[in-house]
Amino acid sequence: SLNIVTVTLNMERHHFLGISIVGQSNDRGDGGIYIGSIMKGGAVAADGRIEPGDMLLQVNDVNFENMSNDDAVRVLREIVSQTGPISLTVAKC
C-alpha cells in the first residue's frame, strides 16, 4: 500500500516552495508527476517530509494524478502565486 502524506506549508515564513516537478510519462501518458529536486531555503526543504521521487497527488484542492507535465507546472505556479498556506499530498515511493 502506498504511504500517503499530506504536508501543509506556511508560505509566509518561506517565500518559495522550492521544488521542481517531473512528469514520468509512459506509453499511455499517465505516468504521474513526481518531485524532482528540492531547493534549500524553500518551504518544502524546511518541512523535510517530502523527498525527491515522491509522487505528487494533490496540491490544495487540485488533483495532479492524470495531469501532463506542462499542465502540472502551470497549475503549481498559479497556486504558488496566491497567498495562504499550501497543502501538498504525495505518495512515498
Rank of each mutant, 00 (worst) to 15 (best):
D61F: 02
G29Y: 11
M67Q: 05
V7Q: 01
T8W: 03
V22W: 13
D30K: 11
G29V: 13
V80S: 14
V22N: 15
S1A: 04
F64Y: 08
T8E: 11
V73C: 14
N26T: 15
E12A: 10
V90N: 01
V7M: 08
T8S: 10
G32V: 04
A72H: 02
E78G: 13
E65H: 12
T6E: 10
G31M: 13
N60L: 00
V62I: 09
S81Q: 13
A72L: 01
G31K: 15
L57Y: 06
M67E: 04
R74I: 12
M11H: 06
S68F: 12
L57A: 02
L56A: 01
N3G: 08
V7A: 06
E12R: 07
L17K: 01
T89N: 04
I79K: 04
V62S: 09
S87I: 05
N63G: 12
L88T: 00
V80I: 12
V90Q: 00
D70K: 05
P85R: 12
Q82N: 13
M55C: 11
V73P: 14
I4N: 06
I33V: 09
V22R: 13
T8H: 07
E78M: 03
N3T: 03
D27N: 11
G29H: 13
T6F: 07
L57P: 00
D70C: 08
Q58I: 09
L57W: 05
N69T: 13
L88V: 15
G84Q: 05
V5T: 10
V90R: 02
K92H: 14
G32E: 04
G23H: 10
V62N: 07
N3D: 05
E12F: 07
L2F: 13
T8G: 06
V59I: 10
V22Q: 14
V73G: 13
G32N: 06
V80H: 08
V62A: 09
V90L: 15
L76A: 14
D71R: 14
K92M: 02
R13Q: 07
F64L: 04
R74A: 10
L9I: 11
R13E: 12
L9C: 12
L9Y: 12
V62G: 02
R74G: 12
T83L: 12
G84T: 12
L17G: 01
M11V: 13
N69G: 12
V22S: 14
D71V: 11
L17Y: 01
C93N: 11
D54V: 00
G18S: 00
D70G: 08
Q82L: 05
T83N: 10
L17V: 05
T83D: 15
T83E: 08
L17T: 03
L56T: 01
R74M: 14
V59T: 02
A72V: 04
E65Y: 03
Q82D: 11
S81E: 15
A91L: 07
N63L: 09
Q58C: 13
V7C: 11
G18L: 00
L9R: 00
V80F: 05
I4G: 03
L2G: 10
V80D: 11
E12M: 11
N3E: 03
L88Q: 01
G29A: 10
R77P: 10
Q58N: 14
V80C: 15
T83P: 09
D54F: 02
V73K: 13
L17E: 03
S81M: 10
R74T: 08
L9V: 07
I79F: 07
T83C: 13
V22M: 14
E78S: 09
G29R: 14
L56Y: 00
M55N: 13
T83M: 07
I79P: 07
C93V: 03
V5W: 09
G29N: 14
T8K: 07
K92V: 05
S68P: 05
N60C: 06
N66R: 12
N3F: 03
L2A: 04
K92A: 07
N63F: 08
D71G: 05
G32M: 04
Q58K: 14
L76F: 12
T6Y: 06
G84S: 10
S81F: 13
D61W: 01
H14Y: 12
D54H: 01
D71T: 14
N3A: 02
V22A: 14
V80Y: 08
N63T: 08
L9D: 02
N66I: 06
N63H: 09
D30L: 08
V75M: 15
R74C: 07
S87Y: 06
G32A: 11
S68W: 03
L17M: 05
A72I: 03
H15R: 04
S81W: 09
P85S: 13
G29K: 15
L57I: 12
R13S: 10
V62L: 09
P85E: 08
V62W: 12
A91Y: 04
E65V: 04
N69W: 04
V22C: 12
D30F: 06
V73F: 04
A91P: 00
N69F: 04
G18C: 00
G84F: 03
E78L: 08
C93F: 03
D71Y: 07
I4L: 07
M11A: 06
L76R: 03
V7H: 02
V75S: 14
V62C: 08
G29Q: 11
V59W: 00
K92N: 06
M11S: 08
F64G: 02
D54A: 02
M55Q: 09
V73N: 15
D30T: 05
C93S: 13
N3V: 03
N69K: 13
N60Q: 14
I79H: 04
I4T: 07
R74F: 04
M67F: 09
T6P: 05
G84K: 05
N66V: 06
N60R: 03
S25F: 14
G18A: 00
G18E: 01
S25P: 04
E65P: 01
Q58T: 14
V5E: 08
V75G: 11
M11W: 05
A91S: 14
L2D: 09
G31N: 10
S1T: 06
N66C: 06
C93H: 14
L57V: 10
M11P: 09
C93E: 15
N66S: 07
L57G: 00
L9G: 00
G32K: 04
D70T: 09
R13T: 10
M55G: 05
V5Y: 05
P85A: 13
Q58V: 13
M55L: 11
L57R: 08
G29W: 07
A72K: 03
E78Y: 04
M11N: 08
E65T: 12
D61M: 10
A91K: 15
A91H: 15
V62Q: 09
G84H: 06
R74N: 13
N3H: 02
P85V: 11
V90P: 00
V7K: 00
R77N: 11
G18M: 00
K92W: 02
N69S: 09
G31I: 05
T89L: 10
T89R: 11
N66L: 12
